[in-house]
Nucleic acid binder design. Structure first.
Length: 310
DNA sequence: AATAACTACAACCGCTATTTT
DNA sequence: TAAAATAGCGGTTGTAGTTAT
């Protein structure tokens, strides 16, 4: 009892798009606008499935796309966002105007991964490659935690809803730095080419600064308000994020950093509810007293309030 | 000059959530 | 309400271009 299919799969083109196909798609969308990918191919006279048309338009034909090389600032922003969001390329792309998720994903895999490895940082965890395992049972990104939360049963101090987010720095810090030799299997030059005969490289690292945060449920959970999905995991799926943001009045999460409790949502600047007893506030006065710029809000690196939800 | 190895990226695939019938 | 399709996402692959041997 469902819909009829959008296209006959046997009669659709595959592979690279021709100039003519591009022109047809552009002309159609200019006239009729985006949307309804289901009916678009037929209406536009294209022998493609709607999915293929959508991908072509979103990733390559949209007029607002910024082509060309990524800037150093974009690189660093992608790294920071990836440390926070994991492989949520669409969310990351939402913070980089003119860039697509596919473009950023490719760029990550071809350039930034290598760049981080050269810095001695594991691109998956954003932690130093040579760092020994922590005492904690889970050291994961926000994304990975979505799958691992059920494995924390043996730790009384960490209940099943505790989330760990790694904020390992990717830029070189000026405080308390030590020199450390890093030997890597492969080195690359600035163009990303492999260097065969390399020497051990000295890299600056900050060994005693643990940027890992643990985010726990609110201390005084309201049973009626904790029944939503956000109570079971700190990972917020893109499709339900918007709804969960509205629940922040009732679901303030607290990061314990060196004995100081900081409310996740207040530190994000989303809201500082009356019920919340944390020391952060939306104008940053309290959080600045802790000397802690959660997610780089004060530096403007990440303004979580302006992330657009799709 | 030939070709093997590598890189970059466009496009496809499979999956989940949502929408439509 | 169930079934089937779409929309959208992240992972993977195919291949053209470049570099190294």
């Amino acid at each position: 009892m469902g819909r009829s299919p959008c296209c006959e799969k046997a009669h659709t083109n595959k592979g690279a798009w021709t100039k003519e196909e591009d022109d047809r798609l552009i002309a159609y969308i200019r006239t009729h606008g985006e949307g309804c990918w289901r009916s678009l191919p037929k209406a536009a006279g294209l022998l493609r499935c709607g999915k293929s048309c959508r991908l072509r338009w979103i990733n390559y034909l949209r007029p607002d796309l910024k082509r060309g090389n990524f800037t150093e600032e974009e690189d660093e922003l992608i790294i920071k966002l990836h440390s926070l969001l994991g492989n949520k390329w669409s969310l990351i792309a939402g913070r980089l105007p003119g860039r697509t998720d596919n473009e950023i994903k490719n760029y990550w895999n071809t350039h930034i991964r290598r760049k981080l490895l050269n810095r001695g940082i594991d691109p998956a965890t954003h932690r130093p490659v040579n760092e020994p395992p922590t005492n904690f049972p889970t050291t994961t990104t926000a994304t990975e935690n979505n799958n691992n939360n059920n494995n924390n049963n043996n730790n009384s101090f960490l209940d099943a809803t505790t989330t760990t987010i790694s904020f390992a720095t990717t830029s070189q810090t000026t405080h308390h730095l030590v020199k450390q030799e890093v030997e890597e299997e492969t080195k690359y030059n600035s163009d990303g080419r492999k260097i065969k005969n390399r020497l051990p490289e000295i890299q600056e690292r900050c060994p005693d600064l643990n940027l890992e945060l643990r985010i726990s449920p609110p201390h005084h959970q309201n049973k009626s308000s904790s029944s939503s999905s956000s109570s079971s995991s700190s990972y917020i799926h893109p499709h339900v994020q918007h709804e969960n943001y509205h629940n922040y009045h009732h679901h303030h999460r607290h990061a314990v950093t060196g004995g100081t409790t900081i409310c996740f949502s207040c530190s994000l600047g989303i809201e500082n509810s009356k019920e919340c007893s944390c020391t952060a506030s939306i104008n940053g006065t309290s959080s600045s007293s802790t000397g802690y710029d959660f997610l780089g809000l004060k530096t403007g690196v990440l303004d979580y309030r302006s992330i657009e939800m799709k």
